[in-house]
Structures are given as C-alpha cells and as structure tokens.
Write a protein that binds this DNA or RNA. Structure first.
Length: 113
DNA sequence: CATCTGACCTAGT
DNA sequence: AACTAGGCCAGAT
C-alpha cells in the first residue's frame, strides 16, 4: 500500500515510517524501503537513518535492524543511546547483538500501517 | 572524474 | 541448509 504520509523527500518518508514503529517492535531496512516503494534501496535507508540522530523529534532508529534481526548499526549509535540498551528498555530481548524472536517482534509497515 | 565503501538483500552454488 | 557472489543507491576519497 502507499504511505499515508507524503513523499516530500525520501528521508522524510523514512523518518515518518520509523517514528510510526510501535514500541517494543522492530522492522528491517528492506521492509521500509519496500514500503516506500524504493525496493532494493535498503542501503539508502540506513544512510538516511545515520543522519537521523540530529533530527527532531528523535527517530527511534534502534527499532530498525537487518533482515536477520542483527543490530548491525549498534556501533554507529551515539553514546548513551545504544541500540541494545534502548531496545531492552522497550522490552525487546537482545542476545549476542541480535533480537530474540525477531519474527514475532517484526513489524510490517505495509501490513500494520 | 573514477573507485570504494557501507546501518542491506536476493539469488546461485 | 550454509556460504559466496553479485547487485543496488548514495556519500566519501
């Protein structure tokens, strides 16, 4: 389905979609890109999220992981806002830099949005 | 201006 | 089923 937001810019779309992720849920870069109609541009999503730290309101980028559920971007998170820490605060169990029961915690933008 | 790398994903072996 | 290789878009060197 098409986003109810507006496609003013790719980064804006990514921001809105990531902000729409419910607490305690996670999604993947590919799902976001696909939901935005930019299938295959999953790398771009990651790059957009990289600069999303300075954006306001804060973008819960910690809820975005790769397809396997690994916190690949944990090392790029600023100090005090580590991925695993925030996810744990939301009730998500992290084991070895990966989300436990990722498929259960997975949130599909197109389906649930 | 050409090349490489990177918060990835899909497909082939 | 696990591993390797290729493809994708954008920024950095």
């Amino acid at each position: 389905m098409k986003n109810t937001f507006f496609a003013n810019s790719f980064e804006q779309d990514v921001y809105n979609l990531v902000r729409a992720i419910p607490e305690g849920r996670v999604t993947s870069y590919g799902a976001i890109a696909n939901a935005l109609g930019a299938a295959g541009a999953s790398r771009r999503v990651g790059w957009v999220l990289n600069k999303s730290f300075g954006a306001v309101p804060s973008v819960p980028a910690h809820r975005v992981v790769n397809r396997v559920g690994m916190l690949t971007g944990a090392g790029h998170f600023p100090p005090g806002r580590e991925m695993a820490a925030q996810l744990r605060s939301e009730g998500v169990v992290i084991e070895n830099n990966a989300v436990v029961d990722f498929e259960t915690r997975f949130w599909n933008p197109m389906t649930d949005l």
